[in-house]
């Protein structure tokens, strides 16, 4: 008998791997080598979801490519540190590649290093170039890696919406080809409803956070699921 094995990677979010568990194999987590959209209203924990997904991977030696468009590197370090996850170590160990597309806008002077690139939310083309470099950098370190884009919201604000859909399409194709698993966040209502529909169609999995419930609207090998969650000082916990 053939058993379909949808490979999964640990989400890093306590409780999520249990509710996504495959009835046949008992395995749960995010299907490997797919793209997942995490969306919802503002301030419901989408970025925290990202930190946990990143940290969960790093602690398993899965490197991570991180694209920042809403907050800069300083803020990322601060926010993760609040949960007790220090990134410096991983940056030093070359496990993390960061594309910071927002700090330059606020005028903060930052120096590009081997695994840190500055870009601009005004310039999706430049982001794509840096992403290409980052993808090569990370995928050379491990055939299994994670890639986070947090978030599309600012990109939509500064660019033509369909351009962002096209860029996102190219981004997802690139990460899939390199063997990575992508996570993309988006604030509900920040783009035209048609564009929002397209977004959900471009990705493989869709997860909604509304402040109270986490809803898996679509995921390979797992039906629709809904569970309450809360944000603690250890991050999101599914109850």
């Amino acid at each position: 008998m053939v058993i379909n094995l949808i490979l999964r990677i640990q989400s890093g979010i306590p409780g999520l791997d249990q509710i996504t568990a495959d009835s046949k194999t008992g395995m749960g987590g995010i299907p490997e080598n797919t793209a997942t959209l995490v969306y919802g209203p503002p301030k419901v924990g989408k970025s925290i979801f990202c930190y946990q997904f990143m940290h969960g991977g790093l602690s398993l030696d899965e490197p991570c490519l991180y694209v920042l468009t809403d907050y800069g590197i300083k803020q990322l370090q601060q926010n993760t540190s609040d949960f007790g996850w220090e990134l410096d170590n991983y940056i030093e160990k070359e496990m993390l590649y960061i594309v910071d597309a927002i700090s330059s806008i606020s005028g903060t002077k930052i120096i590009n290093t081997e695994n840190f690139s500055s870009s601009s939310v005004h310039n999706p083309t430049d982001i794509m170039v840096k992403l290409g470099v980052g993808t090569r950098y990370i995928s050379q370190r491990s055939p299994r890696f994670r890639s986070i884009l947090d978030s599309l919201t600012t990109l939509f604000a500064f660019n033509q919406e369909l351009l962002i859909v096209r860029v996102l399409t190219a981004y997802i194709m690139r990460i899939r080809e390199a063997g990575g698993t992508a996570l993309i966040t988006y604030t509900e209502g920040s783009a035209d409803v048609k564009v929002e529909t397209m977004l959900k169609a471009v990705v493989d999995n869709v997860i909604k956070l509304d402040g109270e419930y986490l809803t898996i609207e679509a995921m390979v090998g797992c039906g629709q699921k809904k569970a309450p969650y809360k944000i603690t000082n250890e991050g999101i916990i599914i109850e």
Binding site: P124, T125, D126, M128, V129, L163, R166, V167, A170
Partner: peptide
């Protein structure tokens, strides 16, 4: 074409 898909030119 390039800028249209976010590719450098």
């Amino acid at each position: 074409s390039s800028s249209f898909i976010g590719a450098p030119s």
